[in-house]
Simulated scan of single mutants.
Amino acid sequence: MSERHFDVWAAGDAYERYMGRWSRRVADAFVRWLGCPPQGRWLDIGCGSGALTSTVAVRCRPRALLGVERSAGFAATARAAAPPPARVVVADAQALPVRDAVFDAAVSGLVLNFLPDPGVALGEAARVVRPGGVVAAYVWDYGEGMGFLRHFWAAATAVDPSAADHDEGRRFPLCRPSALRPLWTGAGLTEVTVAPVEIPTLFTDFDDLWTPFLSGQGPAPGYVAALAPDVRERLRRTLHERVPARADGTIALTARAWAVRGRKPGAGAA
Results as ranks from 00 to 15, higher is better:
Leu43Glu: 08
Leu66Gly: 12
Val98Trp: 06
Arg170His: 13
Ala105Lys: 02
Ile45Tyr: 00
Asp44Ser: 00
Glu69Phe: 12
Val159Gly: 10
Gly169Thr: 09
Thr250Ala: 10
Arg32Ser: 10
Ala195Met: 11
Val139Gly: 05
Thr238Tyr: 02
Ala82Met: 01
Ala226Arg: 15
Trp258Arg: 08
Thr185Cys: 10
Cys36Tyr: 08
Gln217Cys: 09
Pro85Asp: 04
Arg24Ile: 05
Ala78Gly: 10
Met146Thr: 10
Gln217Gly: 10
Pro229Gln: 04
Arg181Tyr: 11
Arg41Glu: 04
Tyr223Phe: 15
Phe103Tyr: 12
Cys47His: 00
Ala10Thr: 15
Ala95Ile: 12
His5Asp: 15
Ala126Trp: 00
Trp210His: 09
Leu66Met: 14
Ala93Gly: 13
Ala252Met: 03
Arg237Ser: 13
Asp92Pro: 03
Val224Cys: 12
Ala14His: 13
Tyr18Met: 09
Ala154Cys: 11
Tyr15His: 13
Asp141Arg: 02
Ala228Ile: 00
Ala267Phe: 12
Val129Ala: 02
Ala225Asp: 14
Val89Phe: 01
Ala91Glu: 03
Pro200Tyr: 13
Ala257Glu: 07
Asp100Phe: 06
Val90Met: 03
Met19Gln: 14
Pro83His: 08
Arg25Ala: 10
Ser54Gln: 06
His166Asp: 15
Arg4Gly: 15
Pro229Gly: 03
Gln94Phe: 04
Asp104Ala: 12
Ser23Arg: 02
Arg246Leu: 07
Phe152Ser: 03
Gly262Gln: 10
Cys60Met: 10
Met19Trp: 11
Ala81Leu: 06
Asp28Asn: 12
Thr250Met: 04
Val231Glu: 15
Met1Leu: 12
His151Thr: 01
Val197Asn: 04
Trp140Ala: 01
Arg232Glu: 07
